[in-house]
């Protein structure tokens, strides 16, 4: 997708959707779909940026002095064998309520590691930070390969986001951002809130 965008003379891709679906002939198809954009008169770039942000979000970021760099992902998979301690702690016969430390550890490790992978991905893309879209944790229970009758637990944590970086380092970004209180005149459900606008402060 990035190659295609570069061939079109795009400087970046917005609204990227990443999808994984089973392919009829077997296997999985991974697809990335987005819109290549270019600033008029801008020089062509070798590697366009990618982001999952909508057009609105992209504009807000630009006006505040930030630019997306790339989609950043943190994925971590952890497996823990069901051993005596977790089996005992989680057995239904148990009469008191307590923490099941084995499971806590598995899930915490998976999430922490996903967060670490995300951070490394941001560093790799030379972003200065990341705004996230979603965090997902999937846990599964399956039969242990090595030991019959026993089970293993698997936790898979995924964090997806967009790495961003600042341009125009000469002034702090907060000074360039102006927010105003708005009262929406939309439907009855319209509520008061903040809007972000990009006007420079005097």
């Amino acid at each position: 997708m990035t190659a295609e965008a570069a061939a079109l003379g795009g400087q970046g891709v917005v609204g990227v959707k990443l999808e994984v679906k089973p392919f009829p002939a077997g296997g999985l198809e991974f697809s990335a779909l987005g819109t290549a954009i270019a600033a008029p008169g801008g020089p062509p770039v070798r590697l366009p940026f990618t982001c999952e942000l909508s057009g609105q979000e992209f504009t807000k970021l630009l006006l505040a002095g930030w630019t997306p760099v790339a989609i950043a992902l943190g994925i971590s998979v952890g497996v823990r064998h069901e051993d005596k301690s977790t089996a005992l702690e989680s057995s239904a016969a148990m009469t008191w309520n307590t923490e099941i430390s084995g499971h806590t550890e598995l899930m915490n490790r998976a999430r922490q590691d996903a967060a670490e992978q995300l951070r490394r991905d941001v560093v790799k893309h030379r972003g200065s930070g990341v705004v996230t879209r979603e965090m997902e944790l999937r846990v599964e229970d399956y039969e242990c390969q090595g030991l019959e009758g026993a089970s293993d637990h698997m936790a898979q944590a995924t964090i997806a986001g967009t790495a961003i970086t600042r341009f125009g380092q000469d002034q702090p970004p907060s000074a360039r951002l102006e927010t105003s209180m708005i009262l929406s005149l939309g439907d009855r459900g319209g509520s008061a809130g903040f809007s972000v606008s990009g006007r420079e402060r005097p």
């Binding site: 979000e57 970021l61 995300l118 951070r119 941001v122 705004v131 996230t132 965090m135 986001g161 951002l177």
Partner: peptide, 13 residues
Amino acid sequence: VFTSDLSVSEFLL
């Protein structure tokens, strides 16, 4: 770098 659990608008605000 920083990591966050914020959306773009939240981050800017």
